[in-house]
Design a protein around this nucleic acid. Structure first.
Lengths: 150, 150
DNA sequence: CAATTTGAGTTCCCTCAGGGAACTCCGAAT
DNA sequence: ATTCGGAGTTCCCTGAGGGAACTCAAATTG
């Protein structure tokens, strides 16, 4: 095994990386989310090699993150996010939030997010699912869970 | 340029990937967060090649995500998260949340998070920073921002 | 009907990044 | 004076990513 396989580790971060950790995968999801759904569009938009794009799309479909949906009689299809994939996009929003805050520089963020519920330009905020108060890296203790390694 | 450089794209996701998108980087941050701070400990815990570990650590220090902190007279040091790095760990928590939900299987999540504020085992929840209501991938419109590409 | 176009991949070759293991450097402890 | 231990370096080998050209089948064009 040359390139290490993260999927087997007892770590949800590693397992998630096994699904979207390869180069380009998150950007493919971003594009599909933004409405770029076809092979050639994706290839052109990202500038990715066709070989790798094929590989990544198959991987994402195999893992149930994207689904192939025909849009014509002939064998033509588009890629769509599944529920599982849509929830990954939440992760991308958090990622974009960090990039906006720390890497955007003078020019400001390249993309803005308008929240349907309130209509405002905003960003995501991390809250505790239980008490609703802010929940950040320093606000938690880590404990071994049921699926912990022996 | 062989391996594509994401840092130059007008996309905060791509820019973030430029910092932590390489294989192992997120797992290194996870370990540092969890208290694994020294070179040999990291190498042993992750099973990463020493060469790549050196490379990743330098990259993360260069990008201000980790800092090298001496812990002895002799040239010995530990890696610590900076503020910038700690905010990346928020991202890792979201990533772990997705993995817990979709990939943990029968055994359940390998790690549990206890929130200091309420003392409960919990997970993160994404809220709109403006109105406080849930904010997910489907709840937003994307608009070009000030730093958008021409 | 023949020729072209179009979406969606395949195939081939080449370079470079990652894995593994051994080697180096240096101040401290024995 | 030798050994040790942390923190890298160096070397070689394999395989993944980039680029560009090739394939294939259905539809459209002339």
């Amino acid at each position: 095994m040359q390139r290490t396989d993260f999927g087997k580790l007892a770590c949800s971060i590693a397992r998630t990386l096994d699904v979207i950790g390869e180069p380009w995968s998150p950007l493919i999801l971003r594009d599909v989310w933004a409405g770029v759904r076809r092979f050639d569009q994706l290839q052109a938009d990202l500038g990715i090699s066709r070989k790798v794009l094929t590989e990544r799309l198959n991987h994402l479909v195999d893992h149930g993150v994207l689904e192939r949906r025909p849009y014509d009689q002939r064998p033509r299809h588009e890629y769509h996010l599944t529920q599982k994939g849509a929830e990954l996009v939440d992760l991308l929003m958090v990622m974009a939030g960090w990039g906006d805050r720390w890497l955007a520089g003078e020019a400001g963020p390249p993309v803005l997010y308008r929240h349907h519920a309130c209509g405002e330009i905003s960003g995501v905020d991390l809250r505790c699912a239980h008490c609703g108060r802010p929940m950040h890296a320093g606000d938690v203790d880590l404990l071994p869970g049921p699926g912990a390694a022996v």
